[in-house]
Design a protein around this nucleic acid. Structure first.
Length: 532
RNA sequence: GGCGCCGUAGCCAAGUGGUAAGGCGGCGGAUUGCAAAUCCGCUAUUCGCCGGUUCGAAUCCGGCCGGCGCCUCCA
């Protein structure tokens, strides 16, 4: 087994060779905490959460760092607008970010360094660059001298000659328009930190160079972020770090595709609109609603608060949507797409309930194989125990190999999800073939095999961060009072059916369907489910 | 203008030289009093268009059309 990753630096897939055998250091550029996070802020964390899970599964010891930029022009402006301190604003928005990460089940991040906690590291870094002649002070500001870096442009594949650089108010203090600020002297009223130059604050790019060095060393393995950060942010980071250290900052640069904002979807979607008009008969109203919704979101560029999105959609549906496309591709995002994703999830949830009916055990209580060796051993052992079911285990094993091979090849989550669906088919088919469902059906050997096979399924889903915890159930589903009422209705209908009064039975069922309750009749009774 | 990405079924989406994964939806069958759920089968002779390389191309090359991103501190 060898892992391959696509490296923005070389524009190629490369074999993974860690700096230190068995260990991986990864750094992801986090948010500037001046506003509540939106969906786009979750893309990187979800993807790299899966990356880390897969690496850990493969036996690596992984350190995952996500920084928080808590001092920046945008914070200063927003804090002034809201008449609060920059620190208080940063605190509020950092908490929002953390809540969202945790709602998304992202619990793999080891460090969240903040810029304001790293001032000495940043200042030392800048001093080092000045000493080596790569940076210069000008009027209390410090700038990186792009002209001194012969390799500048190698990450984003641009030549300095082709770039325009930023002009603006600081242009006169810079030797070249391409030079960028490492330290900005403060204007009156702005938060400041003492420095060898003027009191002020760090530039954005230098924070990441200093913090990644502090936590992961001068050269580490993965550096990630959105594609929009390749230039200038990451280009500048590379320049700073490599000029100071004389060695690579990160060996592999991984960049995720960006969210396609709803207003852009609208633009693309001449296509969407057309098919809708030509398509469904009842599409009229739906289409109008969608258009309205898209328009609303368009105004805010789809940047509505992520916490609000979480009130409308299950976190797991959002996670599935984000990993259903290869991480380097743009992700089509809309409320409809999330709903579709939630629908896809139902197939799995229904199996988990079925598993519970058949075995009496909760899917979520099954042991979770956290690494590849344990998974190999489990499956080999299970299949040896159950020679009668060799066919099923062979199928499952092939799917597992395929799943892992796809994950090994640049974290192809979208393809791997396909294997998950196929594995689900194997499990459901097994239940059918072995007739494990129904009152009084027991077959200990088959049940044990089902349990073992399901453990393997859970292991694979776990790599994607799926189905590790029970999902939040739809409102009402857990309410005991509601369930008692439902049992009453189910009893009435059962009596009607026994008396062959199917009109009454169907009336009960159809009316329930209309208010969003689905009934399922089984050999051993009727179950109900709330669908919203 | 410079750098780069994308165009695969009604929709979403894998696949970067060996004969089109998977999901949603749809159709047919098993099952069911009828449904729901589940299982089985079918649902792209073809990958924006045109040309080229090759025994062989969705995949490589050239051109064209259409969409998108970055080149101003957005993940």
């Amino acid at each position: 087994m060898s892992l391959r990753v696509y490296n923005t630096l070389t524009n190629k897939k490369e074999d993974l060779e860690p700096v230190t055998p068995g260990k991986i250091g990864m750094y992801l550029c986090g948010p500037t905490v001046y506003k509540p996070s939106h969906i786009g802020h979750m893309v990187g964390p979800v993807i790299f959460d899966v990356v880390k899970r897969h690496l850990v599964y493969c036996g690596y010891d992984v350190t995952f760092v996500v920084n928080v930029t808590d001092i920046d022009d945008k914070l200063i402006v927003e804090a002034a607008k809201r008449d609060m301190t920059v620190a208080a604003l940063a605190e509020e928005m950092t908490a929002d970010y953390m809540n969202n990460l945790s709602a998304m089940g992202i619990d793999t991040i080891d460090h969240f360094p903040r810029a304001t906690d790293n001032m000495q590291n940043i200042i030392d870094f800048i001093s080092g660059l000045i000493e080596k002649g790569y940076a210069y002070e000008s009027d209390g500001d410090v700038y990186f001298d792009v002209g001194k870096d012969a390799e500048y442009g190698k990450l984003s594949n641009r030549r300095p000659d082709d770039m325009q650089g930023e002009g603006g108010g600081t242009a006169t203090r810079k030797r070249s328009p391409l030079d960028f600020a490492l330290w900005k002297s403060a204007k009156p009223g702005e938060p400041t930190w003492e420095s060898p130059w003027a009191p002020g604050r760090p530039g954005w790019h230098i924070e990441c160079s200093a913090m990644s060095k502090a936590l992961l060393g001068e050269t580490f393995d993965f550096h990630g972020g959105g594609l929009d950060l390749v230039f200038p942010h990451h280009e500048n980071e590379v320049a700073q770090s490599e000029c100071l250290h004389g060695k690579p900052q990160a060996n592999y640069w991984l960049h995720n595709g960006l969210m396609q904002a709803p207003d852009e979807v609208g633009k693309l979607g001449g296509r969407n609109t057309r098919t809708r008009e030509e398509g469904e008969d009842d599409g009229q109203l739906v289409g109008d609603q969608d258009a309205q919704e898209a328009g609303k979101m368009g105004k805010s560029k789809g940047a509505s608060a992520f916490s609000a999105l979480l009130e409308r959609h299950p976190a797991e549906a959002i996670r599935l949507l984000l990993i259903s496309t290869h991480y380097r591709s743009p992700i089509l995002f809309s409320e409809d797409e999330i709903r579709a994703s939630a629908e896809r999830l139902e197939t799995f949830y229904r199996f988990f309930k079925r598993y519970e009916r058949v075995t009496g055990d909760s899917f979520y209580e099954l042991p979770l194989n956290e690494n590849r060796d344990a998974g190999d051993k489990h499956l080999a052992g299970a299949s040896n125990e159950a020679t009668d079911f060799a066919g099923m285990f062979e199928e499952l094993s092939a799917l597992r190999q395929n799943f892992l091979a796809r994950m090994d090849d640049d974290f192809n989550t979208a393809a791997a999800i396909g294997n998950l669906y196929e594995a689900l088919g194997v499990l459901n088919r097994f239940i059918e073939e072995q007739k494990l469902e129904g009152a009084g059906k027991t077959n200990d050997a088959a049940q044990a095999a089902l349990r073992n096979a399901t453990i393997t399924f859970r292991e694979l889903a776990g790599i994607l961060g799926l189905f590790r915890q029970p999902p939040q159930s739809a409102s009402g589903a857990n309410d005991e009072f509601v369930d008692q009422l439902m049992q009453l209705l189910i009893q009435i209908r059962a009596d009607a059916r026994k008396a062959k009064n199917f009109d009454l039975a169907d009336t009960v069922r159809n009316q329930l369907t209309e208010i969003g309750v689905t009934l399922e009749d089984r050999a051993d009774g009727t179950t109900w489910e709330l669908k919203r």
